[in-house]
Amino acid sequence: MEVRTIKVFTTVDNINLHTQVVDMSMTYGQQFGPTYLDGADVTKIKPHNSHEGKTFYVLPNDDTLRVEAFEYYHTTDPSFLGRYMSALNHTKKWKYPQVNGLTSIKWADNNCYLATALLTLQQIELKFNPPALQDAYYRARAGEAANFCALILAYCNKTVGELGDVRETMSYLFQHANLDSCKRVLNVVCKTCGQQQTTLKGVEAVMYMGTLSYEQFKKGVQIPCTCGKQATKYLVQQESPFVMMSAPPAQYELKHGTFTCASEYTGNYQCGHYKHITSKETLYCIDGALLTKSSEYKGPITDVFYKENSYTTTIK
């Protein structure tokens, strides 16, 4: 009895394709271990004539594949690729409408935090270190965002349907971005203890939790000093293409032309909904596939993004 075979390709990165001759009487799992086709788990399936010449994702289970996976995804987590594939199996079914010149995501599976993050990423200057993220990001900007969303979920250790947080998501993504040249110098002034300067680099240099107003941050924000008295913390120097200011959701007025974009969060910790506000020729609110415009805006804002380049204080 002759062994019926077909020729397929296996890959971990969709760049390096490895030619395989597979036995049609055995499952993919018996031949390769966990195997995925377009995100779908085909591990328990036997090869079919229609699979001839198709590319299958496999887990990096030998040295060659491990090197290829690390170079593309910059992670050695053995569960990463499987999590990416199972997320992709959902995100490829989502709709990605162009809204006001940006790629958004039609609401499904509690994905409003991903839509808000995706919209924000198209408006701030950011370059990702893992080629996987950078490639998928370019495709997302062009309207094909399924891979990018699935990668975000995998890097953030999230599953489809789980509630997510924009600030946490951005923080994970910033860790995989090139923020080497970003720098922030802060000064804390206390009447009792004097003053202390701190220099922050990388992710810490672009994120701040405690106030939404970048102007206020430049002037000074009140913080408790270690001595128990009130101290003032203010920005001395900022070198970065953008800054992200966050605070627990509270009524906040966004003035046209003073910011790049913002995240609105309605609801409580267990259950809520994100919308995205962007400042173009007027203010726009993007909620999944829905767009509304207004000249002014007041609502429960939790993150505001500002364009920056270089700032030095005039406070002496």
Rank of each mutant, 00 (worst) to 15 (best):
L121F: 07
D41Y: 08
N49Y: 11
L133G: 04
Y155G: 05
G39M: 09
E296Q: 13
L119P: 01
R139M: 14
G101A: 04
D41I: 10
R4G: 13
T302E: 00
H176F: 11
K316T: 10
T292D: 05
L118W: 05
R167I: 03
N111K: 05
L59G: 08
L37E: 13
R4C: 15
A146Y: 10
A145S: 06
V42T: 09
H90N: 09
A231T: 04
T75G: 05
S25Q: 14
Y274C: 00
S310M: 14
D13Y: 03
T278R: 04
P300C: 12
E296T: 15
Y113A: 08
M85F: 03
K255Y: 04
L118Y: 01
Y36D: 06
L186W: 10
L173P: 01
G33S: 07
Q175W: 04
V203D: 01
M170T: 05
H176S: 05
E52G: 11
A154K: 02
C227F: 03
D63Q: 08
I15E: 10
L291I: 15
Y172D: 11
L163H: 09
K46H: 15
E239T: 12
N157K: 12
N100L: 10
T266D: 07
Q123R: 06
E215V: 04
T313W: 12
P47M: 05
D180I: 07
A150N: 00
V8I: 12
Y208P: 01
P300I: 15
T76H: 14
G143W: 00
T169A: 09
N147W: 11
E296N: 10
I152N: 06
A177K: 00
L290P: 01
E168W: 06
T282L: 09
I124Y: 05
T103C: 07
V42Q: 13
N111C: 06
F217P: 02
V206Q: 03
P47A: 12
M244W: 02
S279T: 03
C190D: 05
T192M: 09
V160L: 03
L163W: 07
D303Q: 05
Y172T: 15
T199S: 09
P248L: 10
G210H: 00
F305G: 03
Q270N: 14
Y214S: 03
V99E: 13
V21Y: 13
Y36V: 04
G101M: 15
P131C: 01
V99A: 04
N110S: 08
V3M: 14
N61F: 09
V221R: 00
L291G: 03
N111M: 09
P97N: 07
E71D: 14
F305W: 09
T312R: 15
V203H: 13
V189F: 10
H176D: 01
Y234V: 09
R141H: 09
Y172P: 05
R141T: 12
Y234N: 02
G257L: 02
I152A: 08
S50N: 11
T211N: 08
H18S: 08
G288P: 03
K44C: 15
A115C: 10
T211Y: 00
G33R: 09
T159D: 13
H51N: 08
V42H: 13
D13W: 00
P97M: 07
G220Q: 02
L81F: 12
K54Q: 14
T76E: 11
E239R: 09
N89I: 07
V221A: 02
Q270C: 12
F56P: 03
L153Y: 12
G82R: 12
A108L: 07
N111F: 07
S79L: 12
G39K: 06
G164W: 05
V221T: 07
S50V: 13
Q195G: 08
N111H: 00
A247Y: 02
A177Q: 05
G161I: 03
L291C: 15
S79N: 10
M209S: 11
L173R: 04
G210N: 01
P47K: 08
K44E: 14
Y297W: 06
T260Y: 00
L291M: 14
T199N: 03
T10A: 10
C190L: 07
V12C: 13
C261T: 00
E125K: 07
A69E: 07
T120N: 11
P78W: 10
H48L: 13
E281M: 00
D287S: 00
K93W: 07
Q134W: 03
T64M: 13
S171A: 15
F259K: 02
Y252A: 08
S310R: 13
Q31K: 11
G272E: 06
A115T: 08
R83I: 06
C271D: 06
A247M: 08
K92E: 06
D303N: 03
R141N: 03
C271Q: 12
E168I: 08
T192L: 10
V189W: 07
D23Q: 13
N89P: 08
K183Q: 12
A154N: 05
G288W: 00
T11R: 05
V243Y: 02
T258K: 05
D38S: 11
V188P: 01
Y172H: 12
K275S: 10
H48K: 13
Y57E: 04
G29M: 12
C225Q: 04
K158V: 05
I15H: 15
C193Y: 01
R83V: 06
C193V: 04
F148R: 03
T27I: 12
Q31E: 08
A108P: 08
K106S: 13
Y138T: 13
V99N: 07
K316R: 15
Y36G: 05
Q20C: 14
P130M: 03
T55C: 13
K233P: 01
W107P: 02
F259I: 02
T199F: 05
A146W: 08
D63P: 14
R139D: 12
D180A: 07
S295L: 14
A115H: 06
S246N: 01
Y265Q: 01
N309C: 14
G202A: 07
Y252K: 02
L119A: 05
T282H: 07
S295N: 14
Q20I: 10
V188I: 10
N100V: 13
L17Q: 12
R167G: 05
E71P: 08
D135K: 09
S181V: 05
Q98C: 15
K106R: 15
Q98T: 10
K7W: 11
L283R: 01
T5I: 09
Y113F: 13
Q230A: 09
F259E: 05
W107G: 07
K191P: 15
T159R: 14
A136I: 06
E308N: 08
S104N: 05
C112I: 06
A231P: 02
K92Q: 12
K229M: 14
T64G: 12
H90C: 12
S171P: 00
Y234R: 09
L186S: 06
A132Y: 02
Q195W: 12
N187P: 03
P224L: 13
P47I: 03
N268T: 12
N187V: 10
V236G: 04
K218N: 07
